[in-house]
Design a protein around this nucleic acid. Sequence first.
DNA 1: GCGAAGTTGGCACTCAGTGCCATGTGAGGC
DNA 2: GCCTCACATGGCACTGAGTGCCAACTTCGC
Lengths: 207, 207
Amino acid sequence: MIEPKPVPIRERTRRLAQTELTSVAQDLFLAQGYEDTTVDQIAAAAGMSKRTFFRYFPSKDDLVIGKYDLFADRMAEALDARPEDEPVWQSLRRVFDITLDYVEDPHQRARNEAMEEIVRSTPQLHARYLEKMQRVQQLLIGRVATRLTGQDAPTSDPAPAAIVGAAFACMQAAHQAWSTSDKNEPFGRYLDRAMATIRVDETTRTL
Amino acid sequence: MIEPKPVPIRERTRRLAQTELTSVAQDLFLAQGYEDTTVDQIAAAAGMSKRTFFRYFPSKDDLVIGKYDLFADRMAEALDARPEDEPVWQSLRRVFDITLDYVEDPHQRARNEAMEEIVRSTPQLHARYLEKMQRVQQLLIGRVATRLTGQDAPTSDPAPAAIVGAAFACMQAAHQAWSTSDKNEPFGRYLDRAMATIRVDETTRTL
DNA sequence: GCGAAGTTGGCACTCAGTGCCATGTGAGGC
DNA sequence: GCCTCACATGGCACTGAGTGCCAACTTCGC
C-alpha cells in the first residue's frame, strides 16, 4: 500500500491560497507600488477579507520576502551535499549555484526581476531581506565551523562567520554587478570573478 | 572677528531635545522592552506630545538606529585619511579602529551594550541596522573602486563591493565573537584575527 | 511693540496587525 | 440522513505607528 498523501488536503489548499494571494499582490505592487497598496486591496482582489489575509501571511512584508526562507534550507542542504574534503570557499561557490534558478518563461522572469527591484528600492523590504540573508548565513556558519574544526561544539573563533559573510558579500557584489550589466554574460561568471578576488585561510585555529 | 556660532541656537536646542528623548527612551526600553514601549509613553516621559516626538525622529526605530548615520560619515572620512598607496585591506582594518569608541564611564558602557543587545534581539531593529550598515558600505565601495582603478567612473567590476563586503563581514564576525567572550582580550585583537583569515587580490581588472 | 518664522499640542485620519466571537462548511461516525 | 467536530472565514473593535492640518504660542529681527 502506497502512502497516498503525505501532504494533507488542508495544507495544499492553504498553499494554493498563498500563491494566489502572492500573484494578485504582485500585480498590484507592480501597478501602483508596494507602499501605496493596502492589505485591504490585496485581500479584496483575492476575494477575501483582510482578517483572512493575515491568516495566510504574518505580515504584508512576508508576502514578498517569505520565499527566501525556503532558500535557506536549500542552501544548507546544498552545503551538506558537498564533499567533506573540498575547500570551504569552493563549496560555498557551489552552494551559490542554486541561486541561479533558471526560469524559462520570459514573462515570469521579468516579473521576478521587477519584484527584486521593488525589494531593492523599498527600504523596509530591503532591510527585511538583509535580515533573512543574515539568518541563512547563520545556518551555514555552524556547518562551516564543524568542517574547519572537526568539532560540533561552537568555538569563539570568528573565522567561520568571516568566511561565510565574505562569501555572501561576494554573491551580493556579483548580483549587483550582473543585474546592472547587459546580462550577456551569465551570472555565474560574475560570481566566479567576485569570489576570485578573495582567498581564504582555512587553517584551524584553536582559541 | 571670530564667527561666534556656526551652529545656530535652534539647531542646538533641537539636538538637546533629541538626546533627552533618547535618554528617557533608553530607560523605558531597558525597563520594559522596545516593543512594549509606546511612542506616547516616551513622549510623555520627556514632557512632550507624541506629535512633537515625530518632529524630532522620523520613526521610533530611528531613535535607536539613527546614531549609525554619523558612523557612516566618520568611516568615509577615516578611509579618505589613509595613504593612497596603503593596501586596501589594511586601510579598511584601520578604518574599523574608529568603531572602538572608548567609553570610559562603565555605567554608560553597560547601557550601550544593553542597547546593542536590544537591537540584536528585536528583528525589526536588527533589520534596519543591517540596512544602515549596507549604506555605510556603499559609501566605502565608491572610494575603494577609485583606489583600485584610479578612475572616478564606476565600473561593473564586482571586486570593490566584494572587498568592502568581506571586510564588514569580518567586523561583524569579530564583534559577534568578542561580545560573547569574556572580554579580557580587546576587540581589536578579534578584528585582526578575523581579517587575517581573508586575503584580497587587489589587482585592477578592466572589464 | 510688531510682524514673520518657527515650535507645539490637539485632533482626526490611515494603515498594519491582533483578539474575540459568531457563522459557515466539509468530513467522518452512527 | 443526521450529528458532531474541526477548521475556515468574516466582522468588529481595538492598539499603535505615523501624517496632515490648524490654531495657539514663543522667539527673533527690526
